[in-house]
């Protein structure tokens, strides 16, 4: 479990992380989503004590990271795939890290096998591809068999097989009851891996909710309609708060109203409808909507907060 309370980080006048509070629960994969520069990495670095917070505090399993007697057994973190001496072999790098906690070499070999590094374990890390570096970082994170795993952009540079492997790994760790905290700027990746989502933008938490409720809560119904007289249909819908986009003479996309209501209006207006397709709102769309409005969050809560009560509860 990771708990942040009013956690802040300032670099001079720039505020990287602005009084964020959130809790990462054990037993599920929590995604940490935000555009580049939103404060994801800085937050994660503060969790493991690499950066000192300018304000607030963050604890892991009830204590600040540095106060654990065996930090690597509490938290495993992949923060930066390049946090390795380039002239040392992967095996020796892991051995040196393991030695600080008295972790035996058998465990080092175990994580090497687990991450598929076997064939290159004795090679200099400097020659590793980005994907191999990621695997080494993940191997280091798993060394202490920790209760909490923090992975910053773990699929960066991985091939499709590796991406899938990370996905399974994260879910597997969570199913064992561990806390898994995973950052990414790839919404599609989060949709597949995460159970819960914390969205951050410009150093503030924009949303903190189960992933499904973010999708449901953010997306307004969007329906594709083919009709012989779309203008009459739109005329009939006027005043119901819809917006529309005419794509072809007989094809419009209507946002903000349920398909059934469109059909009712069409019947009333005697418009022939020959297609009525509800469009799925992707997490990507939901995310874009969230981050577009992020500036307003200085003064408002989420516009959709009523629909998804869990949203922004972390603040």
């Amino acid at each position: 479990m990771i708990e942040a309370q009013a956690l802040s980080k300032r670099y001079g006048a720039k505020v990287a992380v602005d009084a964020v509070s959130f809790t990462v629960q054990p037993g599920k994969v929590t995604g940490f989503l935000g555009p580049n520069g939103a404060g994801k990495s800085t937050t994660m670095r503060m969790i493991v004590g690499l950066d000192n917070p300018s304000g607030g505090r963050v604890t892991v399993n009830g204590r600040p990271y540095a106060q654990h007697r065996a930090p690597l057994r509490e938290v495993g973190a992949l923060l930066d795939a390049k946090a390795v001496h380039t002239k040392r072999s992967a095996y020796n790098h892991l051995r040196a890290m393991a030695a600080t906690h008295g972790i035996p070499n058998s465990r080092v070999r175990e994580v090497i096998e687990l991450t598929g590094l076997g064939p290159v374990a004795k090679k200099r890390v400097g020659g590793f591809s980005l994907g191999m570096g990621q695997r080494l970082g993940i191997a280091a994170a798993l060394l202490g068999d920790p209760h909490t795993v923090i992975l910053d952009e773990p699929v960066n540079g991985l091939d499709p097989e590796g991406v899938q492997w990370v996905r399974h790994l994260a879910k597997g760790l969570a199913s064992e009851g561990r806390t898994v905290f995973l950052s990414s700027h790839l919404m599609s990746e989060m949709a597949l891996t995460a159970d819960h989502l914390i969205v951050i933008g410009r150093g503030r938490i924009i949303a903190d909710a189960p992933i499904q409720s973010i999708i449901d809560g953010q997306g307004k119904a969007r329906v594709r309609v083919r009709a012989d007289r779309p203008q009459d249909l739109l005329g009939g819908l006027a005043g119901e708060g819809v917006s529309s986009q005419v794509l072809e003479p007989e094809l419009v996309e209507i946002t903000g109203v349920e398909p059934r209501r469109i059909a009712e209006v069409a019947l009333r207006e005697r418009v022939l409808v020959y297609e009525l397709t509800p469009l799925q709102v992707s997490l990507e769309d939901a995310y874009m909507q969230l981050t577009q409005t992020e500036v307003e969050y200085h003064s408002h809560a989420l516009p959709a907060a009523g629909e998804a009560p869990a949203l922004v509860e972390g603040r």
Binding site: V48, G49, L50, Y65, A66, H68, P71, L72, A77, L79, D80, K82, A83, V84, H85, T86, H93, M97, T100, H101, A140
Partner: peptide, 14 residues
Amino acid sequence: ATGMIRSTMVAVPK
């Protein structure tokens, strides 16, 4: 230079 310091200090945060 290599970033190894971060691994070092994550392992020995004191």
